[in-house]
Design a protein around this nucleic acid. Structure first.
Length: 577
DNA sequence: GCCGTTTTCGGCCCGACTGTTTTCAGTCG
């Protein structure tokens, strides 16, 4: 049983305990355990088999025993028994906005409402308003929430949200009563998928700012509105929350609403140990024996807690507070550090722009070098190149280069890793290219062992410079294929193979949660847009955000190297072998 | 159920908003 499967079961246990009306701290302990497991990148199954799980902070004796039982037997009677107490569809009800465990329990106990369709029926028959604690308005809101649930997926990819978010920010920036403003929440932390959008504003005239916000053209409907807080539904279906505070409160509000929740809890705990109490408005003395320092921005806020400034992308409670306390936070990579990129397509395979157009776009973007890596012959669906067509492209690129291209063009290929781990082209062809991106595009359903062995075999080829989109995931659409990522990281370190950070907002693969580990093992990252048209090059922006979340610096990312050094770097692995 | 420089009991972040209440419970972030 994998870690993910264990997490799913623990998550269900938490919900079931909450439904039963158990002690809140009990089910929260299960949620904390899931969180701890998700962040844990060590050897999970060995630890579970040997009973060393309590070494992970947040997992105690009781939960560790349950996990061990799950890993060893694949079953957990405790979970089965809990589950038997409720109909299985009841979990869906948690996705309806406005419904929590207490209300779901009341609906189930008193009306037999145990699924979204039954809830819809009960609302339409006006049964819900008869329950104590419920009323006519609640009933209406539930119907609206059900409709919304049908209409929109709960999460949106960063690439969908970003243009809207930046547009709202720019429009609000021009409002005369806005003093300071920032996007906050998971957007500011550069998360790959977002549940909503948060905007924090400081102003002397909150009413005026709220009116301005309410009249933005992007807004579809207002979900709730108080004196300082407003939630709206945007036309794109995304929820957007606005908070207006005074300018003195702004650094605290911005920090609080940037999160993550776990980072905030740690920060508050740290404040307490220093004799301060921290909330979204201020820092205050616990016993009023001392007056707090003047805090005008987030840097001063972290300073007051004896911490170096922690960039938003790192605020996931994965060791950033400890590092900030010891002043050993990395200097994170920035957009301007990128000098080139490697995984790009042209009309030769399934791209929408020609070689010349891609080169011009790279030049306009200020890149010094561009790698072309079209698909190989087995990717028939993507018009993959035959040996002959690849050699033709090679000649075309050399001619373009000699004609005086402003951008250095590197010749590569995105070479399919076949089912058995062999490559789509023979070594003598690969050796004529500057580099090779090796990717899986078929047979996604192999077992974890087979898939891991398949990719390892490909990495052991001296001509494979880098590994493309490591897990094949399409965010919110296709699950990653089963593969042992720690083993792949170890192999990349041993063979000197770079791992791609695929910057396409549909992929963002390898996931940011693994980069810190990869970096510690000495694995090099390469940020590639997997561009299929000129504007796709801009996806590099999303890649930098994820690299920052993964604690990476310019030294960890190969395409930060200047042109004078990248050529040698591309040749290094093939010369080692 | 977890945790520990208030340590084996007694805490566990906490404020805003809504709706149903008539002082508060539930939900959300």
């Amino acid at each position: 049983m994998t870690k993910d499967q264990v997490c799913t079961i623990l998550e269900e246990i938490a919900l079931l305990l909450e439904l039963k009306g158990e002690n809140v701290f009990k089910f929260r302990a299960y949620q904390n355990a899931v969180r701890a497991l998700e962040l844990f990148t060590g050897d999970f199954s060995t630890l579970a088999q040997e009973g060393h799980l309590p070494k992970i902070d947040g997992i105690g004796k009781a939960i560790a025993e349950k996990i061990t039982e799950l890993v060893q037997t694949g079953k957990l009677p405790y979970h089965e028994e809990l589950k038997a107490e409720f109909p299985p569809e009841i979990f869906d009800l948690f996705e309806i906005q406005g419904l929590g465990a207490k209300k779901i329990k009341a609906l189930n106990d008193q009306l037999g409402v145990s699924s979204i369709p039954l809830l819809e029926k009960a609302c339409r028959e006006k049964m819900v308003e008869t329950l104590p604690g419920f009323g006519e308005k609640t009933q209406e809101k539930l119907l609206a929430a059900i409709e919304l649930h049908h209409a929109h997926a709960k999460l949106a990819r960063r690439g969908k949200v970003a243009p809207i978010a930046e547009a709202i920010l720019e429009m609000m920036r021009t409002h005369p009563d806005v003093t300071r403003l920032s996007l906050a929440g998971s957007y500011r932390r550069a998360k790959e998928v977002l549940g909503d959008l948060d905007l924090v504003v400081s102003s002397k005239y909150p009413e005026s700012v709220m009116n301005g916000f309410a009249s933005l053209p992007e807004i579809d409907s207002i979900l709730l509105r108080g004196p300082t807080k407003m939630s709206v539904r945007l036309k794109s279906g995304i929820q957007c929350d606005l908070r207006v505070v005074s300018d003195a409160e702004y650094p605290f509000a911005l920090n609080y609403f940037t999160g993550s929740k776990e980072h905030n809890v740690e920060l508050r705990n740290r404040a307490l140990t220093l004799g301060w109490t921290l909330n979204e408005y201020r820092l205050a003395s616990v016993d009023e024996t001392k007056s707090p320092p003047c805090i005008r921005d987030e840097t001063e806020l972290y300073q007051a807690l004896d911490l170096a400034y922690i960039p938003p992308e790192l605020r996931e409670n994965t060791g950033e507070l400890e590092a900030a306390a010891q002043n050993r936070l990395p200097k994170l990579i920035e957009w301007s550090n990128l000098r080139g990129t490697f995984h790009n397509h042209t009309t030769a395979s399934d791209g929408k722009n020609t070689l010349q157009e891609m080169v011009d776009a790279a030049d306009e973007l200020g890149l010094d070098y561009l790698g072309i890596a079209d698909h190989s012959k087995s990717s028939v669906q993507a018009n993959g190149l035959s040996e002959e067509r690849l050699l033709n492209q090679l000649a075309e690129i050399r001619a373009l280069q000699q004609a005086g291209s402003p951008v250095r063009i590197f010749t590569g290929v995105e070479c399919d890793i076949l089912k058995d781990g062999s490559l789509d082209f023979a070594d003598d062809l690969l050796s004529q290219l500057d580099y090779v991106v090796a990717s899986v595009h078929s047979s996604f359903t192999l077992s974890e062992e087979e898939m891991t062995a398949r990719i390892i075999r490909a990495m052991e080829n001296r001509y494979v410079t880098m590994l493309g989109h490591l897990t094949g995931r399409i965010l919110l659409t296709r699950e990653p294929y089963a593969v042992n990522i720690p083993k792949l990281i170890d192999c990349a370190a041993a063979t000197g193979t770079w791992i791609e950070l695929n910057a396409n907002p549909y992929r963002l693969d390898m996931d940011w949660r693994w980069w810190h580990l990869a970096k510690d093992k000495g694995v090099k990252c390469v940020i590639n847009p997997d561009a299929h048209q000129t504007k796709g090059l801009l996806d590099l922006f999303y890649g930098v955000g994820i690299a920052r979340k993964g604690w990476l610096t310019r030294n960890d990312v190969m395409n930060c190297l200047p042109l004078s050094e990248i050529e040698t770097a591309l040749r290094r692995k093939r010369q080692l072998a």
